[in-house]
Amino acid sequence: MNNSAARANILQRLRKETPPGLPLSGEGRSCTLVADASCSSPDKGRLGGVSSFDWDKAERVRRFTERMQAVRAEIHHADRHNWLEVLVEICQAKGLNNLLLSPNTAWGQTITAQAERFPSLRHYDQPIDDWKEEMFYGIDAAFTATRGGIAETGTLILWPDAEEPRQMSLVPPIHIAVLETDQLYTTFAAAVQKQGWVETGLPTNALLVSGPSKSADIEQTLAYGVHGPKELVVILV
């Protein structure tokens, strides 16, 4: 139901010549100037609060960890050899009964190969409509890879896909994510640019996740675990 009359009217009004009304006041004029001058290159966009970001990898990891921990995310530092051990320990510590993952990602394959060390592994191998109840009420935790991270804000970049669909990082009470430190960018703008988001085309749903779900709607007091995961666990590899 595309209301074409409304569309035409709105666009027509927006295209109407500005009536010769009042002269602009000072601020109005300067706005126009600003728009003309700097808008041709809005790509200067950067999240930052500091003038330059030349953080090396160690600094990026340090900042990412600091920011994430500030919002009660759990950070584990690991490497290519011991990350699986770390994950086993996390699952034990949390007393998980099951873990939702994709058996087809490289990470998932490694985990699946040692399935006996983990709680019962579940696969998101059918459309949600066929197992929504279990997803909502039966899954303890989900494990996903990430597309990268942002050091400045302590953020995970997720591009959910058929292997690791959107609800994995949303519905279960615990989300365990693995982030390769090679993919840890300084800022959101840097990640967008270096990963070529616009050139590649954006996915159905791209996400930035910076900590477990939270709210400050009651008395501006932070409470964690509102509608999304109550816990966010990040394994840095």
């Binding site: 999240l47 920011r67 804000t153 896909d161 159905t204 996400l207 930035l208 910076s210």
Partner: peptide, 21 residues
């Protein structure tokens, strides 16, 4: 806040082969 917990960027409905959304 330096950033909110979620920044959700939606560009399409569920595509063929995708399992939710």
């Amino acid at each position: 806040q330096p950033i909110t917990t979620y920044f959700n960027m939606i560009s399409s409905p569920r595509k063929p082969g995708e399992k939710d959304g």
